[in-house]
Nucleic acid binder design. Structure first.
Lengths: 186, 186
DNA sequence: GTCTATACGGTGATAGAC
DNA sequence: GTCTATCACCGTATAGAC
């Protein structure tokens, strides 16, 4: 793999783990075994440019993964269940939700940097669109699909935050079940 | 007001606005018009001790406010609606959700500091308990009340993050409505 | 209880050799 | 394209005078 991709991969992991401000350039350089010159060659505008590249790469990964799951299962109910189960399994084995959430970056940077905020908004929007399309395919009206897709995005993101603070998987389990129940009645 | 309380109030606001790592001691000092000596006199263990004091104060404020609202309205449905409307109004007039969320601190620090993580978990738990008790008073079984209270906590927190990234109030509006619908069917 | 002065490591960033 | 050397600045924390 080329250097630029390696920097993005490594930095993405570190940013998700410790937040944007929590990771220094030196830490990224050490993890990559490269020097400052190399990093600034690939990202002339420095750390924020790197962050945006990371968020874009992360977006692609998350959306691809979700599209894969939502393509494999016949209904929103089953796809959501599978997706949340994957989150839970990952959290149990890896003790982290790295690769699935970027809430630390959102909440850290949304008020500080507009370019970063916009990329994050896009990521949430892409996720929400996947839910929306599947719900419409399930036969829901566009109005209902819109509301429920938003609800799914918010509650799953909030559920991940609860899991992280509690160091437990129960919040996501309960939310998955509650979403399933709501979906049946919606 | 005494110096210590003033430091806590000012720091709480800054931490919520820019995150824990995003605010330096110097910035807090300047906003308070005090010196380093004064701060370290009141918080000998430094910045993290100050953060925990801030989270505890914030906890008290949020819970008191929520208990007030949930005491004034007859049902969970009406109380939640009033609470979310208050959030929305605040966001529209102040352009911030300061005073209501601490997600930036949670997601930044949950993986880094166990004491901070535990205080945050307690805050979520206290909020969830308020929902739970009101739902039980509404006549829901403890099982259902538990699930729904968790769902409320997660979706409202997630909804605030969506509002912050989009600079819009619609996510919380939609979530409030969706929660009301789910509640009727639950 | 509050101040000033200082210590020291780390920050993001730049310049120029190879 | 990658390196090393260096920059000015800011971070938290401490010591000691008043």
């Amino acid at each position: 793999m080329d250097t630029k991709s390696m920097i993005i991969d490594t930095a993405t992991m570190l940013f998700q783990l410790k937040g944007y401000l929590g990771v220094g350039l030196n830490e990224i350089l050490k993890a990559c075994n490269i020097s400052k010159g190399a990093l600034y060659h690939h990202f002339p505008n420095g750390k924020e440019e790197l962050l945006i590249a990371c968020l874009e790469a992360l977006n692609e990964t998350i959306i691809k993964d979700m599209e894969d799951i939502f393509g494999r299962y016949p209904s929103t109910l089953e796809a959501t269940d599978a997706m949340v189960n994957q989150l839970i399994t990952h959290f149990e084995t890896e003790k982290t939700l790295i690769g699935y959430t970027f809430s630390s970056i959102v909440s850290e940077m949304a008020a500080l940097s507009d370019p970063v905020r916009i990329v994050c908004a896009q990521l949430y929007q892409d996720m929400q669109d996947i839910y929306f399309n599947k719900l419409v395919a399930d036969g829901f009206s566009e109005d209902k699909a819109y509301s429920f897709a938003l609800m799914m995005t918010a509650s799953i993101e909030g559920g991940m935050m609860l899991c992280l603070t509690q160091k437990a998987t129960e919040p996501l389990r309960v939310i998955s079940q509650a979403l399933a129940n709501s979906l049946k009645e919606f």
